[in-house]
Simulated assay, not measured.
Amino acid sequence: MISARTLESAVQAGIISLDQRNRLQALEHGAVEPDAGDAGSGDENLRLVGGGNDLFVTVGIVLLTAGVYFVLATMLAGQTIWMAGVLAIFAWVVAEFVTRQRRMKLSSTVLSLVFVGAAAIGVSLVADRFYPIRQPESLWQLLALRQMVAPAGYIAFGGTIIAALMYFWRFRVPILAGVIAIAATLLAFLQTAILLYDGVAAGTVAAPALETMPEMMRAALYMPLVCGLVVFAIAVALDLHDRERRTIWSDCAFWLHVVSAPMLVHPLFIMATGQDVVLGTIEPDGNATVMLAVLILGFVYVALAIDRRSLLVPTLAYFGSLGIYYLVNSAANSTGIPPFALILLVVGALIISFGAGWQHIRRLIVRPTLPTSVLDRLPPIKA
C-alpha cells in the first residue's frame, strides 16, 4: 500500500499528475471502481456484474444466506427480531471479504439487499413491539392509531435509512442510494399524512367529503412528484459531479434515476391527460393527446441531455403500457390490428433506435439546441 506521503513525493517529482494522485486516493477509499476505464466507450456503464467468478460467488451467497436463514428459523423459532439481527450481521461480515477485499459487484449488491432487508424487518418489528398497530374495531380506535403510526413509522423508515447509510459508508454499494431514496420518500409520505390528519383533527383543514375525493386524490399526486423531483435533482447533481462516469457516484445516480422516473412519470401523466385517479379511466381528447406527446418528447430530451437511458426506460415502459395505448387505439380499431401489438411495435422500435444510435441521436438533438456553457457541464457527447 502506497502512503499519502509517497504519492505526494511522486507528484512533486513529476512521476504522476495531481489528478492521477487524487484518483488513486479515491480508488483507495472505494470511490472509484477499478474497471472505471470503460467509461470512455460512450455507453452508460452500469458496473453491476464483475464477471463469471462474480456470478459464481453470488450463487454461493444466495445458497449460504438461505442456509443461515433456515438454521436461524430452527434455532430461534419465533424470535424474528433476533433472526433479522443475526442475518444482518451475517451479511455485514461476509461483505467485509466479498465487498471490501474483492470488490465483487453483483455479490456486493445481493449482500447489501440482504443486510438492508434484514435491518428493515428488524427495526419494523422493534417499532411494532413498542407501538403495536392492530386492526381497529371502532372509530375511536381508528382515530387513536395516530399515536401509534407516527412513532412506529419514524422508527421503521428512519431506522432503515440509518442502516443503509451505515452500510454505504462502509462498503460503497451503489444500489443503496436507490434504497435510501425509496425509504426517504415513504417517510415523506408518512409525514404528509400525519400533517393532514393533525390539520383535520385541529379543524384547520376541512375533512374530505365523498364528492371531493377524486380532486383530493389528484392533489395527492403532488407529493410523489415533489419527491421525484428531489431525487432526480440529486441524481443530476451526481452526474454533473462525475461527467466522465468514472466514480461510484455515477452508479448511485443510475439507481436514483431509476427510482425518480416512476415518481415523475405517473403524476405528470395523470395531470396532463386528465385521468380519473379513482375510477382509473382516461379522457383521450385532443388536449390530452397533445400533452401526452409533449411529455414523451420532454422525457426523451432530458434523458438525452443528461445521457441517462435509466431515466428513459421506465418512461417508455409506463407510456407504452398506458399512454401509447390511447394514442394508437383509434388506428387499431380501423385496421383491426390489436392495440397491444401496436404498443410493442412503437416501444420496441424506440428502444432499438435509441440503443443502437444513442450518441448519434445526442449529437443531432442535444448539441445544436443547448449553449456551449451548458454542454460543458453535461456528460460529454462522444464522437
Rank of each mutant, 00 (worst) to 15 (best):
S9R: 13
S9F: 06
A13H: 10
S17T: 15
L18S: 15
N22R: 15
Q25N: 04
H29Q: 15
G37A: 12
A39P: 01
G42E: 04
R47H: 09
L48W: 09
G52A: 13
G52K: 10
F56C: 10
V57Q: 06
A66M: 08
G67N: 07
L76Q: 02
T80Q: 10
V86R: 05
V93K: 04
A95K: 05
T99G: 08
S107Q: 10
T109P: 02
T109R: 08
L113T: 07
G122P: 01
S124E: 05
V126C: 06
D128F: 07
W140Y: 09
L142H: 07
R146Y: 00
A152Y: 00
G153N: 02
F157K: 03
T160N: 05
Y167I: 09
V173G: 08
V173I: 15
P174R: 07
I175W: 02
G178I: 01
I182E: 02
L186A: 09
L190G: 01
Q191V: 12
A193T: 03
G203N: 02
V205N: 02
P208A: 08
E215V: 05
M217V: 01
A220E: 09
L221Y: 11
L225S: 08
C227I: 11
C227V: 12
L229D: 02
D239C: 14
D242Q: 11
R243A: 11
T247D: 11
F254K: 04
W255Q: 00
L256M: 13
H257L: 00
A261L: 04
M263W: 12
M263H: 10
Q275P: 00
I282T: 14
P284N: 09
P284I: 09
N287Y: 08
L295C: 12
L295R: 07
I296F: 11
G298P: 08
G298W: 11
R309T: 12
Y326D: 07
F340M: 13
L345R: 02
G348Y: 04
L350R: 05
S373Y: 12
S373Q: 14
S373N: 13
L375I: 10
D376V: 14
D376E: 15
R377M: 14
I381N: 02
